[in-house]
Nucleic acid binder design. Structure first.
Lengths: 82, 82
DNA sequence: GCGGATTTGTACGTATGTATG
DNA sequence: GCATACATACGTACAAATCCG
């Protein structure tokens, strides 16, 4: 069982990029399938111990890559058309 | 002479979108030509009386539209190839 | 339909780091 | 070294949309 990855605050890679990477992995590995919801920003914020803005930034990266779609009030979901 | 536009805080359009619109206009009208620098984030922040994050967000919109290019330490410039 | 909980959206302020000139 | 400009990150507050009892 792979233990939960953690942000390396000493890494030159920004926290939001690291977090985006974790999520991207889960999508590309299929652990998060098409249509499935990503963890909420609040969850990410607590789970990875980052500020909400950082969690948002990470999700934004995936959004800009077209990997996920976000709906206000509902959540962010892995893009179905894949 | 067109007076400086101002953010309408009562508008349903978010401040960062309004500001992005002002800048987009300046680019598309040619008042800001290819290669020319946009006002700095600090300038925008003071000129339009918004927070730094809001000014950043506005510029980010233009960046995502491919209208401008940002270089750390130098500034944000109207994309030359137009 | 209403109210509360959840989730994302907008906006503010602040601090520190990195790159450029 | 210093000033300027963007980058990252924190924390906070409230609004808007959605969901569910």
């Amino acid at each position: 069982m792979a233990s939960k990855p953690a942000i390396d605050v000493f890494s030159p890679v920004p926290a939001y990029e690291q977090l985006a990477g974790f999520l991207r992995d889960q999508i590309q590995s299929g652990r998060l399938g098409p249509g499935e919801p990503l963890p909420s920003e609040r969850f990410l914020q607590e789970e990875y111990e980052v500020a909400r803005g950082t969690a948002r930034h990470a999700v934004e990266v995936l959004r800009s890559e077209g990997l996920v779609v976000t709906v206000q009030g509902r959540g962010t979901f892995v893009r179905p058309d894949r």
